[in-house]
Amino acid sequence: MTFEIIMIVSLCLLTLSILANIYRVVKGPSSADRIQALDAIGINLIASIAVFSVLLHTHAFFDLILLIGILSFVGTVAFARFTERGMVIKQKDEG
């Protein structure tokens, strides 16, 4: 029972962190802040899903953990690219 309570507490903490990050997403002020927060949300999601898997005794979401890792990386890269040079994919490497 205590175990589950610990899990729930962790989940709540994670939720709070996500909310905190959402606050940052909303608040900004710069795009970079938002992307950063989004990245953090992705990471928090990974953690929450992990905790959740424990709570539900399921392996079903392990794939998701990795996938979120991948996608949050790809997404962050894309965002960063966008804010940095205003375009996402280069036609040709001018450099």
Partner: peptide, 10 residues
Amino acid sequence: VLLFLAFDIE
């Protein structure tokens, strides 16, 4: 897509 992001299309 990640490849495209990191490198260029060509």
